[in-house]
């Protein structure tokens, strides 16, 4: 009979994505409620030393699937290996992060295993041995509480939402034999942003600019730098070609849940609000006191962003030194 919580972690170039720690922590909480164990899996090439980094979040067992063919993510290789591991572990719950990779992988795996999947969940509750997952739909305009039928439930969690908690257990690390199987795709080139740029979906602070910037993002970038945050943009900014698509926050862009979201010169179109409404604290800076963004903000400043934002940057520098 299927039991236990199986967490699929994500690493790239030898570093875990933050959501991996969130997923293991959440798996521990779920497993404790269900009275069962947590098995975490690390996939990659030369990743054996990484396993130790997971131990403090409380897995009972860590499986290291190490193979040269897993160095770069491909849907085929990763889903083949995971399907084998899932078959041998026979878990009741699979948990992973709703990153771009996690969404691609979990969807393929769910079809392979004929298992129900709740995508991009912002909360998981356990009662009477049954999981209820909360997930935004319609770009966050509606939150659905869903339950998964069947022996195996796949829960994919939104990054930056679940709490990371340390709760070390006695942990066994195993390195099972890996069969990569048939791989029909090949990575022929990679272009990874280098430097210290913080990934939007993982950032604790996001400073976004809208049409009010007129395309001049210097003050937005300066505030983001002072706060140690990432830069986002509204759809109209991206449509104008002022910022790349990868910066877009909204229903047709990225969904972000930072601790602090600062919207500068963004009116608050419904499709933008969808992409940032799960932020913990929202600040809006806009010269139009009637802008809809203020109805979704915790704190509002009416003023020209080109006056207010640089002044905020100066104040932040005073306290951040």
């Amino acid at each position: 009979m299927a039991q236990g919580v199986f967490v699929v972690t994500e690493q790239r170039d030898g570093a875990f994505r933050k959501v991996s720690f969130e997923a293991v922590s959440e798996a521990r909480r779920i497993a404790d409620s269900l009275g069962t164990d947590v098995t975490a899996v690390v996939l990659g090439s030369g990743v054996e030393d990484l396993a130790g980094e997971l131990e403090k979040y409380g897995p009972d067992k860590i499986l290291v699937a190490d193979d040269a063919a897993l160095a770069d993510y491909t849907t085929d290789a990763y889903s083949n290996v995971l399907a084998d591991l899932v078959a041998s572990v026979d878990p009741a719950v699979i948990l992973m992060g709703a990153t771009i990779q996690g969404k691609d992988l979990s969807a393929r795996l769910a079809a392979r295993l004929d298992a129900g999947l709740a995508m991009d969940c912002t909360a998981v509750k356990v009662s009477d041995g049954k999981l209820t997952c909360t997930r935004p739909m319609f770009g966050g305009k509606i939150f659905a509480d869903v339950q998964i039928e069947g022996e195996l439930q796949i829960v994919v969690i939104r990054p930056n939402v679940m709490e990371i908690s340390e709760n070390a257990k006695q942990c066994v690390v195993e390195k099972p034999a890996v069969q990569v199987g048939e791989v029909k795709t090949a990575i022929v080139d990679k272009n990874i942003d280098t430097g210290d740029k913080i990934e939007l979906t993982e950032a604790d602070i996001v400073v976004s600019g809208g049409r009010g910037t007129g395309g001049d993002f210097a003050v937005i970038e300066q505030l983001a730098a002072a706060l140690g945050g990432a830069v986002g943009a509204s759809r109209s900014v991206v449509d104008e070609g002022w910022r790349p698509h990868s910066d877009q926050v909204g229903q047709t862009g990225k969904v972000v849940s930072p601790v602090l979201y600062v919207a500068c010169g963004i009116s608050g179109a419904i499709q933008h609000l969808a992409g940032m409404s799960t932020s913990k604290y929202i600040v809006a800076i806009n010269k139009d006191p009637e802008a809809p963004i203020f109805s979704k903000a915790d704190l509002g400043v009416v003023g020209d962003l080109f006056d207010v934002v640089p002044a905020v940057t100066e104040e932040v520098k005073k306290i951040r030194g």
């Binding site: 129900g116 509606i142 339950q147 998964i148 039928e149 799960t278 809006a284 979704k296 704190l299 509002g300």
Partner: peptide, 21 residues
């Protein structure tokens, strides 16, 4: 025959009224 059953739909939690600086 859904494997995913919707138990309830809710509107997102409302924030308190904005505080203007």
């Amino acid at each position: 025959n859904r494997k995913i059953r919707v138990a309830a739909l809710n509107f997102p939690p409302q924030r308190e009224a904005v505080r203007m600086v």
